[in-house]
Simulated scan of single mutants.
Amino acid sequence: MLSTTSIKQIMQDRQSVRKYNVETKISRETIRQLLQDAISAPSSSNMQPWRFIVIDDKEIQKNINFFSFNQEQIETASAIIAVIGDTEMYLNAETIYAQNVELGYMPEEVAKNMAKNALAMYGAASTKVLENIVHFDAGLVSMQIMLLAKEMGYDTVPMGGFDKAKFAEYMELPANEIPILLLAIGEAAAPAYGSSRLPLDRIVRFNK
C-alpha cells in the first residue's frame, strides 16, 4: 500500500523508542519486505557489505541482553535486527557486476573491468580501511530501515552500546563479519523522549 505521508514527515515522526509492547508480533514476511526495500541504499562500489540477523526468539533476545547492558528494549521489542558488516564483501564483485549486465545496466566488458578493479582495490585494503567502509555503509542502510519501519507503522531504536566481541562469539560469526549495531523494532508502548538539535549555524558552514 502506498503511503501518502511525505518523507519529511516520516523523518520528523521517527524517534528512538525504548518501551515496546511485548505482545506485538511482526511477521518474518514483513521484516523480509522491510529489508528488501532498505537494501536499495547506496554502498561503496555497490559492494553491499551489510548482512542482517533477525532475532525474533525471546530466549535469544534475553541472552544477548546479558552483554547489551541490560536494555529493556532488547527483550520487549518484536524483533532485533543485528546489522553486520562483511569485510570480505568485495568477493561478491563478479556476481554483483554480472547482475548489472543481466539487468542491462552496463556492457559486459565494463562490468568485468569494474569487478576486477574492485577485487584488486578492496583486496589490497587494510583491515582498518575495510572496517571503516562497512561501518559507513551500514549507517546508510540502517537509516533506511528505520524510516521504512516508521512508514509501516512501527518504531525503532538503534543501539551501538553492546559488547560486540561477545555478540560475535555468541552468534558464532566468522572473522570477516563484524557486528555494527542492533535495531529494535516493534510497537511503542510509551512515547519516545523528545530530543533537541543544535542550531544550524553551529554545524553548517559554506566553503572554507
Rank of each mutant, 00 (worst) to 15 (best):
V110I: 13
Q36T: 15
R51P: 10
R18D: 00
S78T: 07
Q61F: 01
R18H: 03
D155T: 02
R51V: 12
A168V: 07
K25Q: 12
K8G: 02
E131H: 09
K166N: 09
A111D: 00
R14C: 01
G123V: 02
T4Y: 11
I31T: 07
V101S: 05
K166C: 05
D13Y: 12
M11E: 09
S6A: 09
K58S: 13
D137R: 03
T87I: 15
I178N: 00
I96V: 15
L147Y: 04
T5E: 11
A115T: 09
S27H: 08
S40Y: 12
G85S: 02
N21P: 05
V83I: 14
Q36C: 07
I74Y: 01
A124V: 06
I133F: 10
A77S: 14
G85C: 01
S126G: 12
N21W: 09
Q73N: 07
G194R: 15
Q73D: 06
I74K: 00
S195N: 10
Q12Y: 12
K112A: 06
V204I: 15
K58C: 06
L103S: 11
A168G: 05
F52G: 02
F167M: 15
E169F: 04
Q36F: 11
A98C: 06
G104H: 05
L198G: 06
K164I: 08
G123Q: 05
G160D: 08
S78R: 02
R205S: 14
I60R: 15
A125K: 12
V129S: 14
S45M: 13
F69Y: 14
Y20W: 07
R28F: 03
V129A: 14
T4A: 12
A175T: 11
R32M: 10
L140F: 06
Y90W: 14
D86E: 07
N92Q: 14
M146A: 03
T95R: 14
M146Q: 11
N117T: 14
A118M: 12
L183Y: 00
G160A: 13
I81W: 01
Y105C: 15
A93V: 10
G186L: 03
F67R: 02
Q33P: 01
I185T: 00
A168L: 06
Q99N: 15
Q33W: 05
L34I: 03
E187H: 06
D57V: 03
S43I: 07
N117R: 15
N65C: 08
R205Q: 14
Q71G: 08
A77M: 02
A77G: 05
L140I: 04
K8E: 10
G85H: 01
E131L: 10
Y154I: 00
R14G: 01
R32N: 13
E59N: 12
E94G: 03
M114D: 09
I55M: 01
T24F: 12
K116M: 12
E102C: 07
I80N: 08
K166R: 12
L130G: 03
I81N: 00
S195V: 08
R205K: 10
W50N: 07
R32I: 11
Y97M: 07
D56Q: 09
E23F: 11
N207D: 15
Y154A: 01
A115Q: 06
M121N: 10
A188E: 11
K112S: 08
V54A: 07
Q61K: 14
D57K: 07
A38W: 00
S195G: 08
